[in-house]
Amino acid sequence: MVIANDFFFSGLSKPADTANKANKVGSNVTLVNVDILAGLNTLGISLVRLDFEAYGLNPPHIHPRGTELLVVMEGTLLVGFVTSNPSKLFTKVLDKGDVFVFPIGLIHFQFNIGKTNAVAFAGLNSQNPRLITIANAVFGSKPPINPDVLIKAFQLDKGVVEYLEKEFMSN
Rank of each mutant, 00 (worst) to 15 (best):
P60I: 08
L164H: 02
F154K: 09
T42P: 10
P59Q: 06
L47A: 12
R65G: 07
L47E: 13
P15Y: 07
N41R: 15
V119D: 00
V138E: 12
D35Y: 09
R65Y: 10
L124E: 05
F7T: 08
A153W: 05
A137E: 11
G80R: 00
K14T: 12
P86L: 04
E74Y: 12
N171K: 14
N117F: 06
A19W: 11
T30F: 02
P15K: 11
E162K: 14
F111T: 00
H63E: 09
M169R: 06
I113P: 00
N23W: 14
K96L: 05
N28H: 05
P59A: 06
V101G: 03
T67N: 02
M169L: 05
A4N: 05
A120D: 06
T67D: 03
L69G: 13
K166T: 13
N58G: 04
L43W: 09
F52C: 01
G56P: 03
N128V: 02
T133N: 11
L57I: 12
D51N: 04
F52G: 02
G39V: 12
G66H: 02
K14Y: 08
K142S: 08
S87A: 11
R130K: 06
D6L: 04
I3G: 14
L40P: 11
L164W: 02
T18D: 04
F102D: 03
L89S: 02
I145S: 15
F100M: 05
A54N: 07
V101I: 10
F139V: 04
M1D: 13
K96N: 09
V93H: 01
F154A: 10
A122K: 12
S87W: 07
I132L: 08
L31G: 04
K88L: 03
L70W: 05
H63A: 07
E165F: 04
M73Y: 15
K166M: 12
R130G: 09
V160T: 15
S13V: 06
N23A: 12
D157E: 15
P129H: 06
F111S: 00
G159C: 12
V93L: 03
N28T: 04
N125A: 00
R65N: 10
V48M: 07
D148I: 06
R130A: 13
G159H: 13
L43P: 07
T116L: 03
L43E: 10
T30C: 05
L106M: 05
P144C: 11
L78G: 01
A4L: 07
K21I: 15
N171R: 10
K96W: 11
E53F: 03
L77G: 00
F154G: 07
Q127N: 07
A4M: 03
T67C: 04
I36L: 02
T30A: 05
N136W: 08
I104E: 07
A19S: 15
K96Y: 06
G123T: 13
S87V: 09
T116V: 04
F139Y: 15
A38Q: 14
G11D: 03
K88R: 13
L124Y: 08
F90V: 06
L124M: 13
K152C: 02
T30E: 08
F168N: 01
N128Q: 05
D98Y: 07
E165S: 11
D157C: 15
P15Q: 09
A118K: 00
E68Y: 07
P86W: 01
